[in-house]
Simulated assay, not measured.
Amino acid sequence: MVKARESWVQQAVRKIEADFNRSADTHLIPLSLPAYPGVDLYLKDESSHPTGSLKHRLARSLFLYALCNGWLREGSTVIEASSGSTAVSEAYFARLIGLPFMAVIPKNTSREKIAAIEFYGGQIHLVNSGREIYGESERLARELGGHYMDQFTYAERATDWRSNNNIAESIFSQMRQEPHPVPDWIVCSCGTGGTTATIGRYIRYQGYDSRVCVADPENSVFFDAYASGDPTLQIEAGSLIEGIGRPRVERSFIPSVIDRMARIPDLASLAALRYLEKSLGRRCGGSTGTNFIAALQLARRMHGAGEAGSIVMVLCDGGERYSQTYYNDAWLRERDFDVGPAEWAIAQSAEQGEALPWELEEHAHEDHVPAR
C-alpha cells in the first residue's frame, strides 16, 4: 500500500516536471518611455504561461510542495481560495495529475476566469466576498476529506527562491545583455505576497543592487500594514483590481523584503490599461496597469535625478479575461470611471515628462540601501 502511494506521488511529480520541460520561459518586453531617455523599462510577460498568468508558477510550486509533503493522495479533492487566476492554474495542474479540483471564489470574479476554471475541469463554489474564501475553503476540505492548498499561507515558502528558474532568476538571466543588466527597481504587486518574497530574497541572496517596489491598489490592507508595521490590520472592502490587494495581511506577505510601496488609484490602473493596449498592441490585466503607474513614477524620478538605469515590472496576465469589466465602457460608466482624461495624462507623463495628476501615497523602508 505504501509503495503504491509512493508510486502515485512519483508519477504525479514526474507529470508536473514534464509539463515544465515542455514550457518555454516567459518573455521580457522592452517598452519605450520617450520622456525619460536613459531609463529603460521592461515588462516581464507572465501571460505567456500555459494558463495565462503569473499564478502558473505559484500553482506548480504549490502542487509540488503538497505532493512532496505527503498532503495529496490519489483521488483527493484539491480546494483553493482564490480571486480567480490561481484557481485557473491549480485546476490545470489538478487535471494534469488526475485530481478533482474546487475553487472557492468571490461571486464578482470575472466570468472569463470562471469559464477558464471550468475548462480545466474545476468546480466553482461562490461566496459573497473575498473575506469568506478562507473559512469556506477550510470547511469544504474537512467535509470532503480533501486538501486546502492555502496559497495565502504557502506562497512564500513553496517557491524555491534561490534558483530553479523562479521569476527572479529568470528576470536577471534575461537582462544580462541589456544596457543596464541589473535593474534599479523591480516593480510588482501583492496578492499573496509570494512573488514579492521570491524576488526580494533572490536579490539579497545574489547580492544585487536592485530594489523592490510594490504597487498596491485601493481597498487593500498591504500598504497600511507596510507603513505602520501592524500585521493585524483588516478592512471590509475588497480590491477592484482582481488578483492583487487583500482585506487582511496574508501570511506570505513579507514586508522586510520590500524597499518601497505605492498606493495606486483604481482610475490610474484602469487608464493605464488603455495606454498599454496602444503601446503594446495587446491587452493586459488590471494588476499590470497598477504596476505600470508605479514604474512610470519611478522612471520620472530617476530621470529627474539624472540617473540612468533599468526598471522591470511584472505583466501579470492578459486582458482577455476582463473584456466584460476593465475593457467594457458600460462597466466603467456604471462605476463613474472616466478613463479618457486619465489615459491622456499617463501619455503626457510617459511621452512628454509631465507629472502624473495623482498624488500617490508612498512609503519607503530605508534599511536596505543598495550600493552605488
Score class of each variant (00 low, 15 high):
46 E>V: 10
44 K>L: 03
59 A>I: 09
59 A>N: 02
17 E>K: 05
27 H>T: 11
16 I>Q: 06
17 E>R: 11
22 R>M: 12
47 S>E: 05
43 L>W: 05
36 Y>R: 02
38 G>C: 13
29 I>L: 12
33 L>N: 07
28 L>A: 10
57 R>I: 01
19 D>H: 03
17 E>D: 09
23 S>H: 01
46 E>T: 03
48 S>P: 08
31 L>R: 11
31 L>V: 13
51 T>F: 02
43 L>V: 15
36 Y>S: 01
24 A>V: 15
48 S>A: 10
22 R>F: 03
57 R>L: 00
21 N>F: 15
44 K>T: 04
51 T>Y: 05
19 D>R: 06
33 L>D: 06
43 L>R: 00
50 P>A: 06
21 N>L: 15
28 L>Y: 00
61 S>C: 10
45 D>T: 06
58 L>S: 04
45 D>K: 01
58 L>E: 01
52 G>Q: 04
30 P>Y: 13
58 L>C: 07
56 H>S: 08
59 A>D: 06
36 Y>P: 01
46 E>H: 01
50 P>C: 14
33 L>E: 07
24 A>L: 15
51 T>W: 01
41 L>Q: 08
44 K>W: 04
47 S>T: 04
18 A>Y: 13
20 F>T: 01
19 D>Q: 13
46 E>M: 05
47 S>D: 11
32 S>M: 14
57 R>T: 01
44 K>V: 08
42 Y>G: 13
21 N>T: 15
43 L>E: 04
18 A>Q: 15
33 L>K: 02
22 R>S: 07
51 T>R: 05
24 A>I: 11
60 R>G: 14
26 T>C: 00
21 N>E: 15
46 E>C: 02
41 L>W: 04
21 N>Y: 13
26 T>P: 02
48 S>W: 11
27 H>G: 10
50 P>K: 07
49 H>P: 02
32 S>V: 14
32 S>D: 15
20 F>W: 09
25 D>A: 11
